[in-house]
Design a protein around this nucleic acid. Structure first.
Length: 265
DNA sequence: AACCGACGCAACCGCTCGATC
DNA sequence: TGATCGAGCGGTTGCGTCGGT
């Protein structure tokens, strides 16, 4: 029994795997590993291909549009990374999972609340996501979104304030492809990748900059590490951390979208 | 320049599920 | 119907990098 290689893949191994998949296609990974002469497990080959070698894998920072989508889909489905990844072309479940753990959970820690707590979910929904919408809208000038977006997220980003005619399409769409959806769960989900592409050139600094400013506010937390007592949105501390424009428009504009979401599981 | 801790990402591990026999 | 195997998923780990001291 030949020893199985572990650890980082070499360039040579990548070339072999690439060549073999190009010639024979994906699947039957154990057999592939054997036939290609790779001293790796089938699992390892599959993972390397899906997460790194696939030609359509996207690299670089998660864009604000992608962040918004991740937050939205995670609020619906939880840690269903592969399912979430289906709606972010070129992004892998591993990448999204890493993003969540490194960025989102970090902010939950900074706020000293559990990432699964209602408090943090509310913060995401009523503070973080509206801020993302604001940033996306500012970066795109609004026009890029309004042309092609049909998702609630995109509609909320594209529509002039304060009205948001939220659409309820029958099926979810992935770019030009239709994605199978169960009516009860995903009926209102249409993902605007065409408009995402429009906005990719406006990639911002990412999570660490402005998001930290808007969420990492220990002063908002009480001594137990939670938000101050009372309703999150009416908290004086929370109000004071956002600018007037956001308070007057963003939350108002976003709430119809939030209320249109299917119940969280 | 050296050290050190935090961070981010690639890769691994254990488990589940479905197909096949 | 149970055993086996391949594939996929979510959680976890290990290591390289980078910034601060």
């Amino acid at each position: 029994m030949e020893e199985v290689r572990r650890g980082p893949w070499t360039t040579e191994e990548d070339l072999v795997l690439n060549k073999y998949v190009a010639q024979h296609g994906e699947g039957r990974w154990n057999a592939l590993a054997r036939c290609a002469g790779l001293k790796r497990t089938g699992k390892s080959c599959r993972l390397r291909w899906l997460n790194y070698l696939r030609p359509d894998v996207r690299r670089g920072n998660i864009t604000p549009e992608e962040q918004l989508l991740i937050l939205d889909l995670h609020s619906r489905w939880g840690n269903r990374w592969s399912k979430i990844a289906q709606y972010l072309p070129g992004r892998t479940d591993n990448e999204i999972k890493n993003y969540w753990r490194t960025r989102v959970q970090k902010h939950a820690n900074l706020l000293r609340c559990d990432v699964n707590s209602t408090t943090f979910k509310d913060a995401i929904r009523y503070v973080w996501m509206p801020r993302l919408l604001e940033r996306i809208r500012a970066a795109s000038g609004g026009a890029a979104f309004s042309a092609s977006c049909t998702s609630p997220v995109a509609a909320a980003a594209a529509d002039p304030l304060p009205s948001h005619p939220l659409k309820q399409p029958e099926q979810a769409t992935l770019g030009s492809e239709t994605v199978e959806s169960s009516p009860s769960e995903e009926a209102s989900l249409t993902i605007p990748f065409s408009c995402f592409a429009d906005c990719h050139s406006t990639t911002m600094q990412g999570w660490g900059g402005w998001a930290a400013d808007s969420l990492s506010l220990p002063a908002c937390c009480d001594e137990q590490g939670g938000w101050p007592a009372g309703d999150l949105l009416s908290s004086e501390s929370l109000w004071s951390m956002e600018d007037d424009w956001f308070m007057q428009h963003q939350i108002q504009s976003y709430q119809p979208y939030c209320s249109s979401l299917p119940p969280l599981k």
